[in-house]
Design a protein around this nucleic acid. Structure first.
Lengths: 161, 161
DNA sequence: CTGCACTTTCACGTAAACGGCAAGGTTGCG
DNA sequence: CGCAACCTTGCCGTTTACGTGAAAGTGCAG
């Protein structure tokens, strides 16, 4: 957030703060402009800025977010509703981050951090369950592969498959 | 297949070969009758038998198959088309199994087995890719959890969260 | 054999996740 | 300034994976 404001405030030569229009941004992460607009409509993200003529403008953190969304959709098969939940948790953590810095009470600070940790753990558990079930299928397939390989050994004609 | 025929041929006391109607079968694996019919329509499975009055009748291998389908859908987010592909591979392997027993030529037998192994490896790779990407997300989340825990340690008020 | 629950096929309805087009506004190069 | 290429919102179409009746047949307990 600090970075974002700084970049928006002045185009220092340190970071040009490239803002992409929707087509370029979508292409960058492997999506279509239509999908990106749809994700916005579903409340999954809002572009960093709008141009004078109301063009959507995306920065690097937006691209990160889009990659995160695409990853969860393509790799894990999460629905947009589930992804929205995960992103909401993430934002709750960021609000916690702000509240953390606003407070000086160590007890309050600890409570915020503990909540954060619990949130991470819930997310990890959700993902881990999927991994475990996938792994179980892989394990079974590996076993069957191994049995086939054993049979090949037993035949032992010296051809290379 | 041998088991199936044997069971259908005679109800030995060893295995009563329970056949379930669609509602009971669907409930058994946590699906709706409509979904099961739809899967059949999509070519994912055919019931073991039909009753006199054309009722679908499912045996235990059908239930296995339904659980496999449900697992891939719920856990991995595979589309029915992708699942159909995996099941098709499985059936190709079973046809290979039959061809294997039909042949006595060791070279031919080895070729069949090698094809089988390659098929298993393709399936494993497909699943492993999903697992890897999910694991990457988990790893990153774990890292962030660890950093939060470190901060909690640094505060060190002796409250239990 | 009668009634009730279950089943069949057929057909239409729906939610999610976009695709695609129309009508009009914006950017920016020449 | 002109104009091609991009963008906007709005809206309707499409695919996937079912849900939900309707109309008619089946299975079985009483």
């Amino acid at each position: 957030m600090t970075e974002k404001n700084q970049a928006a405030a002045s185009e220092t030569e340190t970071q040009p703060a490239r803002l992409l229009r929707i087509q370029e941004a979508a292409a960058e992460v492997g999506l279509t402009p239509r999908s990106v607009r749809y994700y916005e409509e579903m409340g999954l993200l809002r572009p960093a800025a709008r141009s004078e003529g109301d063009y959507r403008l995306y920065d690097s953190t937006d691209l990160e977010r889009l990659r995160f969304i695409k990853g969860l959709r393509d790799d894990a098969g999460f629905s947009l509703a589930e992804i929205a939940q995960l992103l909401e948790d993430e934002e709750a953590r960021e609000r916690g981050h702000a509240a953390f810095h606003a407070s000086t009470d160590p007890v309050e600070r600890k409570r915020i951090l503990c909540e954060r940790v619990a949130s991470f753990e819930r997310q990890i558990e959700t993902l881990q369950r999927k991994i475990d079930r996938l792994q179980a299928i892989v394990d079974e397939t590996e076993g069957r592969r191994a049995r086939s390989l054993a049979k090949i050994e037993a035949i032992g004609t010296d051809q290379p498959c």
